[in-house]
Simulated assay, not measured.
Amino acid sequence: MSGKDPLMVQVAQHVEDLDRATTFYTETLGLPLIARFGPLVFVDLGGTRLLLEEAAPPALLYLRVDGLDQQIEHLKHAGVEIVSAPHDIFTDTEGLFGGHWTVESQAFIRDSEGNLLGLVGHRS
């Protein structure tokens, strides 16, 4: 395995409606579109490619977001299904996960295709 490059290069997510899913991930979530090649759409997840494709199996993605509570309010107003409101998951007082944070909170939503999507926020 290479040293400096990210280990995760790409993750695929199943979609039923490619146009609808592309709009959800790029406009609703605000992620940058990399490219579209026929039935394949690539979105940038901060250096990891998200492949949206009808033939892909479902995946459970966890996306780090700033201001988790505010993001959930924004998504709620956009009509996104909130499955689970933000709640604290873990307190990392020993730096086990190597972040510059102490508390990890998570919330869960459904994307435009019905896939469960985890949103993760960190705070000191």
Rank of each mutant, 00 (worst) to 15 (best):
F97Y: 15
L29C: 05
N115C: 02
F42W: 11
G47A: 04
E104Q: 10
H87M: 03
A12I: 04
T23H: 13
G114W: 03
T26W: 09
G30V: 04
A78Q: 07
G47Y: 02
D44R: 00
F90C: 06
F37S: 05
V83R: 00
P58R: 12
E54W: 00
F90L: 13
F24P: 08
G79Y: 06
Y25F: 07
T93P: 03
E113Q: 10
L7I: 14
Q106L: 07
H100V: 10
V103Y: 03
V9C: 08
Q13S: 06
I109W: 03
E104L: 12
F42A: 07
V9R: 08
Y62E: 07
E104A: 14
D111E: 04
F97E: 10
T102C: 12
L96I: 15
P32M: 01
L63R: 04
Y62V: 11
A78T: 00
A21Q: 08
T22G: 05
P39N: 13
E81Y: 03
G79T: 09
A35C: 05
G38S: 01
E53Q: 14
A107T: 00
V43L: 06
Y25W: 12
I34E: 09
A56S: 07
S105R: 12
H87T: 08
H77T: 10
G99I: 05
M1C: 04
P32W: 02
G118D: 04
E113C: 13
S105C: 04
V80L: 07
A21G: 05
D19S: 10
F108A: 09
T26G: 06
Q106V: 07
D19K: 14
L33P: 03
I109H: 02
E73I: 02
L75Y: 05
D111W: 09
L116T: 10
R123C: 02
Y62C: 12
V15L: 12
D17Y: 03
G114C: 01
E27W: 03
K76M: 09
F97M: 13
E54R: 13
E113V: 07
T22H: 02
